[in-house]
Design a protein around this nucleic acid. Structure first.
Lengths: 152, 152
DNA sequence: TTTCTAATTGGAATTATTCTAGGTTTTGAC
DNA sequence: GTCAAAACCTAGAATAATTCCAATTAGAAA
């Protein structure tokens, strides 16, 4: 029986996007993409590595970096730059912002209203991508008195 | 004669801001701030270190990191996160965006129109700071055919 | 001036990422 | 199918950015 082509991670999307970008579909790339789709908590490369290893013990960290790179290149994944503690990865390709909680370090997707209008560019600047970061306190930490800092 | 209190870098601003945040005014902090004001090209910590050393040969890299941290803490400097190659620092505290040229790596301040309206936060999220990054090609690189990539 | 504490220093340690070299898999031409 | 070329994967080394640490120095309040 042939592999189901529209399962969550093996769908035509991944294969298509890769080949369109001149890249190949490999088990490792599937696995890395699957990991990202499974738990959308903006993991770091290292976290992706640990999760991917559970199903594919021989995958290497270098490969995870390469796969993430490939996925970013073919437009299925965003490379997110929180500023502290390494970059993170996000398979949500809709236009959105990232909210960084200063208390717990969590990263959240926030919708970006379609009517934002953009920022007018000075002459000569060619804008390709916008990335909006919002820093503050998330609902959980806001509700806690200590703002996430462990007591004692 | 007393030191002039409103010279570019020794002005009341630095001293005041530091003490308000419970920090002390030190020669090193002055020097680091002076370096940032002198050439507003969004240097990395290492670049700040090299520039600061010219006038203050004994300053250490660890101190530069500490000083930058202090300046950020007291609201005189922004910590900028380009995503590649280390964070950068910006003494422009007006509301503005950062444009990252993908060809030459340059960082440019772009005005942010006052009427942006902000992004509506979901219930419970408390936004403290917005950071808008724009990636693309700067005027100089756009004018060059190779887009900044060295030929050959 | 004394005293207290924050800040500085150099170097070691840590963390995140990239590089390198060699082995493996995939693809496409025959 | 077979073969060669190209792309890919892997482990471990190397590099880059940042933080940590223990000992000294220097602001600033009394």
């Amino acid at each position: 029986m042939k592999a189901v082509e529209n399962s969550k991670t093996r769908g035509p999307l991944l294969s298509e996007r890769l080949t369109t970008s001149g890249l190949r579909l490999t088990r490792q790339r599937e696995q890395v993409y699957r990991v990202l789709l499974q738990k959308r908590d903006h993991p770091t490369a290292d976290e992706v590595f640990l999760r991917a290893k559970r199903q594919m013990p021989d995958i290497s960290l270098a490969t995870v970096y390469n796969c993430l790179d490939a996925l970013v290149q073919c437009g299925l994944v965003r490379h997110v730059h929180p500023g502290r503690g390494g970059s993170r990865f996000c398979p949500n390709m809709r236009e959105h912002c990232h909210f960084y909680c200063e208390a717990c370090g969590g990263v959240f997707d926030i919708d970006w209203p379609a009517d934002h209008g953009g920022v007018p560019m000075p002459k000569g600047f060619e804008a390709k991508r916008y990335e909006i970061a919002i820093r503050g306190v998330c609902p959980d930490c806001g509700a806690r008195p200590g703002h996430g800092a462990p007591p004692g």
